[in-house]
Simulated assay, not measured.
Amino acid sequence: MYRFKTFLLMTLLTVIFIILGGAIAGEGGLFTAFIFALVLNFISYWYSDRIAIKMTKSKPLPKEKAPNLHRMIEDLSRKADLPKPDVYITPSNQPNAFATGRSPNKAAIALTEGIMDMLDKEELEGVIAHELSHIKNRDTLISTLAAVMAGALAFIARLGRYRMLFGRRNKGAGALLQIAALIFAPLAAIIVKMAISRTREYKADARAAEISGRPDGLASALEKMERYMKSGGENMEVNEATSHMFILNPLSSEGISKLFSSHPPTEDRITRLRQMR
């Protein structure tokens, strides 16, 4: 099933990418966008873990610097029937975490400095189990592909707007098509990405409760993290295209941005976990 989802996502985003390239630069743009999309898909598939780590400025966390954390991840990985993923630390005071990698054998988990300081053992186990669930379900590949393609679409849309302002402008129907593509193509890609993200968060929460055996641990962790977000704590310095990869959206969601949130309401997630007791 995950292979079908991956293929579908790559196909949809590639088609949107080609349409946008064609609207901006005509037939030549169609061919260029097609080649660029193929190259981008190839790179993001094989190097998804490295891309995500680099985009979030995460660094390797050696076992000797955090032996208890590594032992915890080893134990939970064994319960989830997974190889132990690589462990990274993300330089931010905001409590958050994400997983990445194209397969369980090429996976990594990144934890922020803030989450290490804020959560107790059971809460941290819940968060790690949640990320292991994403690895088990192969969500990590899909989410990274979505991040890379969405970021590329946003970039090419900016180039298109620049060309409209300072370059040669199309006229009539061509101009309308160009404007529509610049507005709706990136939006369509975002909607595709969000639809996948919301569903997978609920599933990962449920699986995490099974792995850790303590649904209250993850529920309590989500409460603390949400409280930090609502109290005006710092946003992470991450690209918006990668925000859906985290256990909670690391960027503030106010106003209309809530309509396009990649995560379901945290209160709903907590309620579901409490009911699993």
Rank of each mutant, 00 (worst) to 15 (best):
I24P: 14
V39T: 06
S92M: 05
M164N: 15
I256N: 05
W46I: 08
L30S: 06
T144E: 13
T11E: 15
T56E: 13
A150Y: 15
I89T: 01
A80H: 02
L12V: 00
G114T: 00
T271I: 09
H263F: 11
N105Y: 11
I135P: 03
T56R: 00
T140V: 00
K230F: 11
M72T: 02
I53P: 01
G101Q: 06
N68F: 12
F7R: 09
F166E: 02
T11D: 13
I128E: 04
L187C: 12
A188R: 07
I247Q: 04
P250N: 00
S257P: 02
N68G: 08
T266H: 10
K65T: 07
D139V: 04
R3I: 09
P215W: 03
L30V: 12
G28K: 06
E267I: 03
Q94P: 00
F36S: 08
A150H: 13
M116L: 08
K193C: 08
M149L: 11
S143N: 12
A157V: 03
R207G: 02
A181C: 06
G126V: 02
L141G: 09
G174H: 09
I191A: 15
R71H: 03
A208F: 05
Y88Q: 00
R78C: 01
N239G: 00
S92R: 09
E226V: 04
V238Q: 01
Q178V: 04
K59I: 09
N170E: 15
K171G: 09
D81G: 08
I190F: 15
A204R: 06
S252I: 06
M10Q: 14
R3H: 13
S103D: 11
D49Y: 08
P265L: 06
N249W: 11
K5V: 05
I109H: 01
I18N: 10
N93H: 12
A206H: 11
Y228V: 01
N170L: 12
L8E: 10
K258D: 01
D81M: 06
G255V: 07
R168Y: 12
K59D: 13
G126Y: 10
F42P: 07
S220P: 04
I43V: 10
A195I: 12
I128D: 01
R274A: 05
V238C: 02
G160C: 06
P264E: 15
S197M: 01
A129G: 02
G174P: 09
D81W: 06
L153E: 15
M229Y: 10
T266I: 01
M118P: 00
I73L: 10
Y2R: 03
G21Y: 14
S197Y: 12
T271F: 14
W46P: 04
A208R: 00
A107D: 02
V39R: 01
L145T: 02
A189S: 14
M1S: 10
R207S: 03
P83Q: 07
R169K: 11
Q178A: 09
M276A: 05
S262M: 09
M245F: 03
R277F: 13
M72H: 02
L30F: 15
A52I: 01
A154M: 12
A97E: 03
A25Y: 15
D49S: 07
G28D: 13
S261G: 05
I18V: 00
M118I: 07
D75E: 10
D49T: 08
A221C: 03
N68H: 11
P264C: 05
N239D: 09
M229A: 04
Q178H: 12
A157F: 14
